[in-house]
Amino acid sequence: MKAFVCTEFGPVDNCAVEEIELRPPDDDQVLIEVHSASLNFPDALMVEGRYQFKPPLPFSPGMDLAGIVREVGTNITHVAPGDKVIAFSGHGAFAEMCLAPRDKIVPMPAGMTFDAAAAFGITYSTAIHAFQECGRLQPGETVLVLGAAGGVGIAAIEVAKAMGARVIAAASTDEKLALCREKGADLTINYNSEDLRKRTLELTDGRGADVIFDPVGGEYSMTAFRATAWGGRLLVVGFAAGDIPRIPLNYALLSERSIVGVFWGAWAARDVEGQRRNLATMARWFTEGKIAPVIDSTIDLAQIPEAMKRLMDRKVKGKVVVRVRKA
Rank of each mutant, 00 (worst) to 15 (best):
T298D: 09
Q303A: 14
V272N: 12
E256K: 11
D296P: 08
E288A: 13
S258E: 09
R276H: 08
W264V: 04
P293Y: 00
T298Y: 05
V272M: 11
V294M: 08
A280L: 04
I291L: 12
R270H: 09
R257G: 04
D271V: 05
A268T: 03
T287P: 01
A292I: 05
R270L: 11
E288P: 03
Q275S: 15
G289Y: 01
A268N: 08
R276F: 06
E256D: 15
W264D: 03
A292M: 15
G289W: 00
A280P: 00
E256S: 15
Q303P: 05
A269I: 05
T281D: 13
A269H: 10
G274M: 02
I291G: 04
E256V: 06
A280R: 09
A266R: 14
A266L: 13
A283H: 03
A266F: 09
V260R: 05
P293H: 05
A292Y: 11
I299S: 05
A269C: 10
W264E: 04
A268W: 01
T298E: 15
W285A: 00
L301H: 07
A266M: 12
M282V: 03
A280F: 02
L279M: 13
M282A: 08
W267H: 09
T281W: 02
R257P: 04
P293G: 08
A269R: 14
T298W: 07
G274P: 03
S258V: 00
I295R: 10
G289R: 02
V272E: 14
P293L: 04
R270D: 13
D271W: 06
I295V: 14
I291R: 10
E256Q: 13
R276Q: 11
A283N: 05
R270E: 12
I299H: 07
I291T: 14
A280W: 03
A292G: 11
Q275V: 01
T298K: 13
A302E: 14
W285K: 02
G261K: 02
F263G: 06
T281L: 07
W285N: 00
K290R: 15
R257T: 04
R276W: 06
R276N: 09
R257K: 12
I259R: 02
T298N: 09
R277M: 06
L301N: 05
E288D: 15
V260I: 12
I295H: 08
A266H: 12
S297F: 09
Q275K: 14
A292D: 09
W285R: 00
G274N: 01
V272A: 10
T298F: 06
F263S: 12
L301G: 09
R270F: 07
L301T: 06
R276C: 03
T287K: 10
E256M: 15
D300V: 15
R284P: 00
W264G: 03
G265N: 12
T287D: 12
G289Q: 04
K290G: 02
